Amino acid sequence: MSVGTHEVKVKTWADGKVVELNVHGKLTEKDCEEFIPVIDAGVELHGQVRLLFNCEGFEGWTMGGMLEDIKFGLHHYNAIFRLAIVGDKKWEKAMATAVRPFTKADVNYYDITELELARAWLREGT
């Protein structure tokens, strides 16, 4: 996708135990308002969810998006069981390390070529 294109897709599988978030462009406050209820619904049903954050085409956050993302992390510290971050940039790989203090989740980074491996890891035991 070209720079400036904005699209966010959220899908669930394994009866809502796994949430897959695909972000192209910058993550906005409105985007967070759309995907957080999906995660909350999975947590309500299962106690915790597994989250795949696909960063292919991700260009960072707007200021409002960053603030909402920080609030999400603070309020969902125990809600994520496993977090797979999938990307193709060095800073995205570093993000996998940077989020660890903000979650109890088991966090793994996968290169975009390993997307199916990330999905398999998230499916384990569901």
Rank of each mutant, 00 (worst) to 15 (best):
N78K: 08
V19E: 09
V10G: 06
G65P: 08
G60C: 01
R100E: 15
K71W: 08
D15W: 00
S2I: 00
K93E: 15
T126W: 00
T103Q: 04
L51K: 00
L67F: 15
Y110R: 03
L21D: 08
G125F: 05
E56C: 07
G87H: 01
G125L: 00
L117P: 00
G47V: 04
L117H: 10
V3Y: 07
E59C: 02
I39C: 10
E59Q: 11
E33P: 09
A79T: 08
S2Q: 09
G47P: 01
D40I: 01
L51V: 10
E7H: 07
H76L: 03
Q48T: 15
L83Y: 10
V38I: 14
M1A: 13
W91R: 10
D106T: 14
R119Y: 09
P37S: 12
K93D: 11
V23Y: 04
E116Q: 01
W121F: 05
V86C: 12
E92H: 12
K11T: 15
E44Q: 11
G60K: 00
F53Q: 12
E124D: 10
G57E: 05
T113W: 04
I80W: 02
E68D: 08
G4S: 03
F35R: 04
L74N: 13
A79G: 07
W91Y: 15
K26Q: 14
C32L: 08
E34V: 02
T97M: 12
L51G: 06
A96C: 05
G16T: 01
K89P: 11
L122G: 03
N54Y: 09
H6L: 01
T97D: 12
W91D: 13
D106K: 13
D69Q: 07
V107I: 05
H76Q: 10
H76S: 08
A84I: 04
G87M: 00
F81G: 14
I70A: 06
E56P: 04
T97Y: 13
V19P: 00
A120Y: 07
K104F: 09
W121T: 00
G125C: 01
R119T: 08
G65K: 06
H46A: 05
S2R: 06
V86N: 11
I36H: 11
D15V: 00
D88K: 09
E59P: 02
R82V: 05
E92L: 03
A105K: 01
Q48F: 07
I80M: 04
K71Y: 10
L52D: 15
F58Y: 13
F58K: 05
E7V: 00
E34T: 09
E114W: 02
L117E: 15
L51P: 06
V8M: 14
L115F: 15
V49S: 12
A118F: 03
A118I: 02
I70E: 05
E68C: 09
V18D: 05
W13S: 14
N78Q: 13
V49D: 14
D69L: 03
K90S: 13
I112D: 13
L45S: 11
E59K: 03
H76A: 03
I80Y: 02
R100S: 13
Y109I: 08
T126E: 11
F58D: 11
L67C: 09
F35G: 08
P37W: 10
I39V: 14
P37R: 10
I80C: 05
Y77A: 06
S2G: 11
V86Y: 09
G87I: 03
A41P: 01
V3L: 02
I85Y: 08
V23K: 03
A84P: 03
L74P: 00
M66F: 14
